[in-house]
Design a protein around this nucleic acid. Structure first.
Lengths: 218, 218
DNA sequence: GTCTATATCTCGATAGAC
DNA sequence: GTCTATCGAGATATAGAC
């Protein structure tokens, strides 16, 4: 479903890039299943069936299940790094655009939030290193973006704020089944999206007001 | 593997409630492992080893793995329902106390947030009905609490706000490894907790101000 | 490059001795 | 009530025909 498997020229030789197109079909199937069910709960047989081949055939395109998992993340999270790079290099401070544009992006690519949540539930004993790596990259972008915007609270406060923004940004989509059960409409509903954006901006605007060096709660 | 951690009760030979105490040891081990690794990634052999018995012995205390899973949730989430009942029946409006007291409670019982996050990552094809059931109960409490506090925005707005508060309340603990990597201190650190509470109250206080019927983002 | 067949492992659950 | 032994299912990965 997700991703762009058809970026090949249709006119050229038919059977030449067959292997490449099979690999892309596999990536499409794997991305959808990994996002929905996670790494452990997704079997290579399911992926192969969805891609229209048998399970051992996967090993002609990917070295292992983990190799396939890593390549899924690299392809799927590209739009996020592209957006963050754009916001970082832009002339205006990209921080106030983060909420709206990231929300739109996550709505357009529903697998991204689901893939990243695997880092949050990763266990200490058997950590999901792939998801954790990408989580750190995304948070690293967020920190650089807040620095560029001139935000400079004490270290601990900045960390708590970054975590909060991250949770609101991605949690909206993680909790989309919950939102649907409450409203009866999908999370990507236009009105729900607009409300979430307003809420995010309200929240971000209220952040500097809480900056009290001593951190004492009134 | 290695089952040699035999900590026998030092007290007198009270063999009467041995079965009961074994069941509680199993529940303790299962709660810790389910919270850390989730249902699928936790094997009955691991639980039994941590409880000091062999795997088939579990079936003398619990009918199945799912039965054990359900009983773990019922015991672990009791503090949450107790707190919500208390806030609901209290004389003052319990809504403004929700943030502080729930944050303290989740810090005191670290498994609760980790157990509930399984509802968020539950797949459509094989949903975690136990975790989803408890998520709905908790959110139901939250909705009743906001009604009691006199909050009465339009239905969609209320839903988006409830999801946001839920995400900030629980996401702080879900993302505790992330916070630790940013600050070097555990999420239950006194200063981080105080900052999170202030942030939560700032956010909740800002909520009514965003109530715009048309939901147009400036 | 795709297939069938299979090796090896781990899982939940059951049977039966004590 | 705990143990040892084991079953049947499903997992990843490999071998070899075509």
């Amino acid at each position: 479903m997700e991703g762009a498997s058809n970026q090949l020229p249709k006119g050229s030789g038919a059977a030449i890039n067959k292997g490449r197109r099979t690999a892309n079909r596999i990536l499409d199937a794997a991305e959808a299943l990994f996002a929905r069910n996670g790494y452990e709960a997704t079997s290579l047989r399911d992926i192969a069936a969805e891609a229209g081949i048998q399970q051992p055939g996967l090993y002609k395109h990917f070295a292992s299940k983990e190799d396939l998992y890593r390549q899924v993340y690299e392809r799927a999270l590209r739009p996020v790094t592209d957006l963050m790079d754009q916001l970082l290099t832009g002339s205006d401070d990209g921080f106030d655009q983060l909420a709206n544009r990231m929300t739109d992006l996550l709505a357009q690519h529903p697998t991204i939030a689901r893939l990243l949540v695997r880092a949050v539930v990763s266990s200490d004993s058997q950590p999901d290193l792939v998801a954790l790596d990408w989580l750190n990259r995304v948070v690293g972008y967020g920190r650089r973006l807040s620095e560029k915007a001139g935000e400079d609270p004490a270290g601990d406060l900045l960390a708590v704020q970054i975590v909060a923004i991250f949770n609101m940004l991605f949690g909206f989509f993680w909790a989309s089944p919950l939102l649907e059960s409450l409203t009866g409409k999908p999370a990507t509903d236009e009105r729900a999206m607009a409300l979430q954006k307003t809420l995010l901006q309200t929240f971000i605007a209220a952040l500097p007001g809480m900056a009290e060096p001593a951190g004492k709660v009134p």
